[in-house]
């Protein structure tokens, strides 16, 4: 049992949970994740370790309440418990000083981006961070990411905050000027966003690292459910990733495999809403 110390709402349906897990806090590195199960009988789901405090023995998890399992998790209040937290899993981000880098986060991906930006800043990089969201309330971690970045640029689909349009529009502008063109790009967010970023940097051969989010069960290389195609080779995202060279990833396959349980998920969500558990929707 893992105690939840705090549960804070960062954006609509996006929560930050601080959880007591001393061993994970001590061992984790940027880019790694945990597999979490809210309670007996619940699904195992992967969540990026947003941050960790070794002294306090805690890890921060950013959870977007989109499905039945994530809703159940964000409904756990401070003082409550998460049944299982296993990790840290996956490979750590390869951190080096590239010089000038662009870090791009879309939606909840921005939370995954946070430990990356922190690590890259510590490695001495000059960082331009681009955060995209549907509308103003969905643009998260501005303050935290702003403090680590030289420039912070915001975009929203509806123009309610920052530049109206997609993160790629802003990236394009950065790339068009040799003074601002990044030496490496890190992108975390929905598949189509990462794909668009990778397509944009491909011609100029700017190294582009993406963090993939396939369906996982064990997170230890045991089931192969998380398999992705990288450069024509099958990789298990939980042990070989989750970060890969964006220019080699087959994003269409990723999107396709992510849709495997679409129908079941919709039914679970309907059940959940029917069952008065409208948690995370308050």
């Amino acid at each position: 049992m893992f105690k939840v110390l705090s549960n804070e709402i960062l954006a609509p349906e996006l929560h930050k949970l601080v959880v007591v897990a001393p061993r994970v806090a001590k061992a984790r590195k940027a880019g790694q994740f945990v597999i979490v199960r809210a309670d007996v009988g619940d699904e195992r789901i992967p969540l990026t370790i947003g941050d960790a405090d070794v002294e306090a023995g805690t890890v921060s998890l950013f959870i977007q309440a989109i499905g039945a399992s994530t809703r159940k998790l964000v409904a756990i209040q401070a003082g409550g418990f998460i049944r299982d937290v296993a990790g840290p899993l996956g490979l750590a981000t390869h951190l080096e000083n590239y010089g000038r880098v662009a870090c791009i986060g879309g939606g909840v991906g921005t939370a995954v981006l946070y430990p990356l930006v922190k690590g890259l800043a510590q490695a001495g990089n000059e960082i331009t961070t681009i955060i995209g969201g549907r509308s103003a309330p969905y643009v998260i971690l501005q303050k935290e990411l702003g403090a680590l970045s030289k420039n912070l640029l915001l975009t929203t689909d509806d123009g309610s905050l920052g530049v109206k349009g997609f993160v790629t529009n802003v990236l394009k502008e950065l790339m068009s000027n040799p003074e601002t063109c990044p030496k490496a790009v890190f992108a975390v967010g929905p598949g189509p966003m990462m794909k668009a970023v990778a397509e944009m940097t491909r011609a100029d051969k700017i190294p582009t690292i993406v963090s993939l989010n396939p369906i996982m069960i064990d997170g230890t290389g045991m089931c192969g459910g998380c398999r992705v195609d990288v450069g024509g080779e099958v990789k298990f995202a939980c042990v070989d990733g989750p970060e890969f060279d964006g220019h080699l990833v087959d994003f269409d396959l990723l999107r396709d495999r992510l849709s495997t349980y679409k129908d079941q998920e919709r039914r679970a969500l309907d059940r959940c809403s029917a069952d008065k558990c409208k948690i995370g929707r308050s």
């Binding site: 299982d84 296993a86 990790g87 840290p88």
Partner: peptide, 10 residues
């Protein structure tokens, strides 16, 4: 102790 992956957690 469950949820402990040797090689990762310790």
């Amino acid at each position: 102790e469950c949820n402990v992956i040797i090689g990762k957690t310790m």
